[in-house]
């Protein structure tokens, strides 16, 4: 079997301008900063970036926003990075704000082969605009479509050589969901252990989802 352990530059060799990239993390906790470095160094532009938030101006997705590498950002929160709001108001970057639980389910739906999810979240708000509404057992739900990506850049605490992942504490967040929803999944990890060193019961993301493993 192909060795999954590689460098950031090899892992992102096929990343191109205009692609859709999911980036894990919640306010940069569980964000693969080394992979963000590589995206910046490669000079990739016009990205559609999907993430919980747009980080901080000097951290996480925020660095891609500040460097004007993002054409469109899909996130639940942009408040910690004033530059995202500035670019949005100036019409420089398209920003789609999505309720956090909806974003999680949209990503999960793509990875799970679902045609979308029905959620009560956003009914009666601007979030429902342009979306189909269904009534189930007398209650209104919005049909939210799946969100898939070309690349998922995720962060885990530990991987074995097959890519089985273990996350730590609140650094898990969107990472396991994004691992299921992209064509190429790159996991930046703190520690790489031999196959068998992680008990199968402890695996949080099965290695079959992981294309490349990069040491943090």
């Amino acid at each position: 079997m192909k060795n999954k352990i590689t460098s950031a530059s090899e892992a992102l060799a096929t990343l191109q301008d205009g692609m859709t990239v999911m980036i894990g993390g919640f306010l940069c906790v569980g964000t693969p900063e080394g992979l963000v470095d590589e995206v910046l160094q490669k000079g990739i532009r016009e990205l559609t970036v999907i993430g919980n938030d747009t980080g901080f101006p000097d951290k996480g997705i925020g660095r891609l926003i500040v460097a004007k590498r993002v054409k469109k950002a899909v996130a639940s929160h942009i408040g910690t990075n004033p530059e995202t709001g500035r670019q949005m108001h100036a019409g420089e970057t398209e920003v789609v704000l999505v309720p956090q639980g909806t974003l999680a389910e949209q990503v999960r739906a793509a990875g799970a082969g679902l045609g979308g999810v029905l959620t009560p979240t956003g009914v009666g708000t601007v979030v429902e605009e342009g979306k189909q509404k269904l009534i189930i057992d007398g209650r209104e739900f919005l049909l939210e479509q799946p969100l898939a990506a070309d690349f998922a850049l995720i962060k885990a605490h530990k991987a074995d050589e097959k890519g089985n992942l273990v996350y730590r504490r609140a650094a898990r967040n969107f990472n396991p969901l994004m691992a299921m929803a992209a064509k190429v999944v790159v996991a930046e990890v703190e520690e790489i252990v031999p196959v068998g060193a992680i008990d199968p019961d402890e695996v949080m993301t099965p290695g079959l989802f992981i294309t490349h493993i990069v040491r943090a």
Binding site: D53, A75, S76, H77, I78, G79, G85, M88, H89, L97, P99, Q100, G101, T102, T121, G122, T125, V127
Partner: peptide
């Protein structure tokens, strides 16, 4: 426009 985060 900070976004709704998890509030909705």
């Amino acid at each position: 426009v900070p976004g709704m985060g998890g509030a909705m």
